[in-house]
């Protein structure tokens, strides 16, 4: 009797929560295949490099990535010389020098990714009052993670009949509330790829998402590798203790 009661209670909870989930999100996320998923998941470095290009050429105009340094790019397959060249395309303010003056110099691998705006006020001013969030942790700071990001980038649509869209807002199927202050950033062929990969909207978004997942969780591959070893260790240890336990307790009566 009790079991049935408990079962009904839990069933109610589950039904209830799925109802609620549907109320909030108009559109269910379309799941993509990601190479980093699964127990042995690894990063697709070619895709991440392409995604970095998309970030640099499009998103970096508005979004900072404060937690990354140019030196971190070594992880995704750039050589130290390539990184020096990439960094040197940006300008940072350094100083004071011997005369007490601040000065501009090209960025070095040991510098952070350079911010597009000097401060938050300028960022808001340039974006109709909306603040473009830092993208370093974006896949960890949104429900749905990589899939949410991918769907957001490909989820712009014509404003639906009868929906109320605010001034300077755009309709997006996946943004909570369906309104976003960011105009659609990516279109087919927004960015040229050097390696002949098709550059349609889906591919650009896919590569970019791969890049941002790496940026948020650079430890992912190492983590999964060590994880397998840790679990195997406990399994072996457990099997060993299990048989020892059986042997010891046989004598107890």
């Amino acid at each position: 009797m009790m079991n049935k009661l408990l079962f009904t209670l839990f069933a109610l909870i589950i039904i209830n929560s799925s109802l609620q989930a549907e109320e909030l999100k108009a559109e269910k996320l379309k799941k993509q295949d990601w190479s980093f998923e699964g127990i042995t998941g690894t990063f697709d470095r070619a895709s991440i490099q392409r995604g970095f290009k998309v970030y640099r050429e499009v998103c970096a105009v508005c979004h900072s990535m404060n937690l990354l340094y140019y030196r971190d790019l070594i992880d995704i397959g750039f050589s130290p010389d390539q990184i020096k060249v990439i960094a040197s395309e940006y300008t940072v303010i350094d100083g004071p020098n011997d005369e007490g003056e601040m000065f501009e110099r090209p960025a070095r691998p040991s510098d952070r990714f350079v911010d597009p705006y000097r401060n938050d006020v300028e960022a808001r001013l340039s974006n109709n009052g909306a603040y473009p969030p830092d993208l370093s942790l974006i896949t960890k700071s949104r429900k749905g993670g990589a899939d949410y990001l991918y769907n957001l980038l490909t989820g712009y649509a014509e404003t639906e009949e009868g929906s109320d869209i605010g001034e300077g807002m755009y309709y997006n199927l996946y943004m909570p509330g369906n309104q976003i202050a960011m105009p659609q950033p990516l279109y087919d062929e927004s960015v040229e790829y050097d390696d002949g990969t098709p550059n349609n909207l889906n591919q650009l978004s896919y590569d970019l998402t791969n890049f941002l997942v790496w940026a948020a969780e650079p430890e992912l591959e190492e983590r999964k590798r060590i994880g397998i070893i840790a679990i195997l260790f406990f399994v072996v240890f457990g099997v060993f203790s299990f048989f020892l336990k059986l042997r010891l307790w046989k004598k107890v009566s």
Binding site: K140, S141, K224, G227, A230, I231, F234, V235, F237, F242
Partner: peptide
């Protein structure tokens, strides 16, 4: 033996779903 079983479970979470019990908003 009990600790080994616990070790397997907590390792699965630490290494393969370290943010399952965290709130996404705390990464903002």
């Amino acid at each position: 033996l009990a600790f080994s079983v616990f070790g397997i479970i907590i390792s699965a979470v630490i290494f393969f779903g370290p943010n399952l019990m965290a709130e996404v908003d705390n990464y903002i």
